[in-house]
Each structure stands twice: as C-alpha cells, then as structure tokens.
Amino acid sequence: MSRYSTPGQVVPRSGVYRCSSEDGHVFESTDVKGHRFPPLPRDCPARGGCPSTADHP
C-alpha cells in the first residue's frame, strides 16, 4: 500500500499529511486513520499528500 494519499481516499494511518510542489506551495492536513483524505485547495498543483510526521503512539 502506498503512503501517498489522494483526496477522497481512506487514510492508511493517522498523522500530519503534507503536499508540497516545486513552486513552493505547501498544504498540511491532520488526518485520522480510516477517515477520508480531504480535498486540496483549488490552487494546489499537487494531487495528494504524504505523511510528514508520525502518528502519536
């Protein structure tokens, strides 16, 4: 299973997900395992996000 999540996909693990693009745009979202990954802002050129911090033990 890929750690990369796209909007609408069920999040595989809890944590802070981050999308960043080459143009410097950054978007962070705190998500809970089993919930759906939220939509990205309209101006976000990325297609989804990867966990940037581990979930809390």
Rank of each mutant, 00 (worst) to 15 (best):
K33P: 09
V32D: 12
G49H: 03
D43L: 03
L40H: 08
D43P: 00
L40P: 08
Q9W: 00
R36C: 09
C19T: 12
A54T: 11
S20H: 04
S14Y: 01
H25L: 06
P51T: 00
R47W: 05
V16Y: 00
H35F: 08
R42L: 10
V26I: 15
G8M: 03
G8L: 03
D23R: 07
P57F: 09
G15M: 02
S2N: 12
D31I: 00
F27C: 12
A46D: 11
G49I: 01
C50R: 10
C19M: 05
R18F: 03
T53S: 15
H35N: 15
P12V: 01
G24C: 03
V26W: 00
F37H: 13
S52G: 03
S2V: 02
P38H: 12
E22L: 10
E22S: 15
T6V: 15
P41M: 01
P39W: 02
P57S: 14
T30S: 14
P7M: 05
V16Q: 05
R42S: 13
R47Q: 11
P41I: 01
C19I: 01
S52W: 04
S21C: 15
F37W: 12
P38K: 04
S14V: 01
Q9T: 12
F37Q: 05
P51F: 01
A54L: 10
H35G: 11
Y17R: 01
P12S: 05
R3T: 12
D31K: 05
P12Y: 02
S29C: 13
V26L: 05
R13S: 14
L40I: 04
A54Q: 10
C44M: 12
E28Y: 02
C19G: 11
F27W: 12
Q9S: 15
Q9D: 10
P7Q: 06
P45M: 03
R3S: 12
E28I: 00
P45L: 06
P51R: 09
V16K: 06
G8K: 04
R47M: 08
P57C: 08
P41S: 09
D55K: 11
A54C: 07
V32G: 10
V10P: 12
S14P: 05
H35K: 14
S21D: 13
L40M: 11
R47C: 07
T53L: 12
E22A: 13
D43F: 08
P45W: 03
R13H: 07
M1G: 15
V32M: 11
V32L: 13
Y4H: 14
P38D: 03
H25W: 05
P7A: 06
S20R: 04
T6F: 06
C50E: 13
P39H: 02
G48T: 03
P38N: 10
C19P: 00
R47H: 09
V32W: 09
H35V: 05
G8H: 07
T53H: 10
V32Q: 14
V32Y: 12
G15F: 04
P38T: 01
L40E: 04
G49K: 00
